[in-house]
Computed example of a mutant assay.
Amino acid sequence: MSLSAPETAVVPGVAGPARPTDRPRVFETWTLVEGPVEHGDKRGRELGFPTANLPIEDGVARDGVWAATVELADGRLVPATVSIGRRTTFYGRDGVRLLEAFLLDFSEDIYGQHIRVWIGHRLRLQKRFSSVEALIEQMRSDVDDTREWAKVTPWFLTQASRDWTGR
């Protein structure tokens, strides 16, 4: 597996709340990470949350679970729950750092395709879970929070961000 750093940028924008009761954060930034989707160990698929994986070096985006937008190679935008970190539940602190994007309501094969991940709103910190069941329960909650975020996030800002970066 290649660990070359994906391209990154920080783009001005506005991110919406994770839950309807949260107040929107105006002038928050989007972090852009892009690169080709790589095969992983298929753990997300086994848990019911298949992911698009991008290797990510230290210092590129903060670890955590995020609400995001994935821009596919054909230009479509798909909301996603994104995990950035070392997957400590399975690999401890020695795991390879990875960006894993679970694209909501999406089932196409995009291995090898170049995608852009617009990281918008931090849902929570990374944590180690005591069981796979506890992890799956939290992942369901993270996806629900992402859906709520996507309902109130102005999608035109992602388009404006695309225009800002020249793509």
Rank of each mutant, 00 (worst) to 15 (best):
R97Y: 04
R97H: 05
R97W: 02
L98M: 15
L98R: 12
L98D: 05
L98W: 04
L99P: 00
L99T: 03
E100G: 04
E100D: 05
E100M: 06
A101Y: 00
F102D: 02
F102M: 08
F102T: 05
L103N: 03
L103R: 01
L103D: 01
D105G: 10
F106H: 05
S107E: 11
E108L: 05
E108A: 07
E108R: 05
D109A: 09
D109S: 11
I110D: 00
Y111R: 03
Y111N: 03
G112E: 03
G112N: 06
G112T: 06
G112F: 00
Q113C: 08
H114Q: 15
H114D: 12
H114G: 07
H114S: 13
I115N: 04
V117S: 06
W118E: 00
W118V: 01
I119L: 11
G120W: 01
G120E: 08
H121Q: 13
R122G: 05
R122H: 07
L123C: 06
R124D: 02
R124A: 06
L125T: 13
L125P: 04
L125C: 11
L125W: 05
Q126T: 12
Q126R: 09
Q126E: 15
K127F: 03
K127Q: 14
R128K: 15
R128C: 10
R128A: 12
R128V: 10
F129Q: 09
F129E: 09
F129I: 09
S130Q: 15
S130E: 15
S130T: 13
S131K: 09
V132T: 14
V132S: 09
E133N: 12
E133F: 07
E133R: 14
A134G: 11
L135N: 06
I136E: 12
I136T: 15
I136C: 10
I136F: 06
E137K: 14
E137L: 13
E137D: 14
E137W: 09
E137H: 12
E137N: 10
Q138F: 01
M139F: 07
M139K: 05
R140P: 01
R140W: 03
S141Y: 04
D142K: 07
D142A: 05
V143Q: 01
V143C: 05
D144I: 12
D145E: 12
D145Y: 11
D145P: 04
T146M: 08
E148T: 07
E148Q: 14
E148C: 09
W149T: 09
A150H: 05
A150K: 04
A150C: 08
A150Y: 02
K151N: 09
K151R: 15
V152A: 14
V152G: 10
V152P: 01
V152Q: 13
V152R: 14
V152T: 10
T153N: 14
T153A: 14
T153F: 04
T153W: 00
P154M: 09
P154F: 09
W155H: 09
F156Q: 14
F156G: 11
Q159L: 13
Q159N: 10
A160W: 03
A160I: 06
A160S: 10
S161Y: 00
R162W: 00
R162C: 04
D163K: 08
D163T: 10
D163Y: 07
D163V: 11
W164V: 08
W164S: 08
W164N: 07
T165L: 15
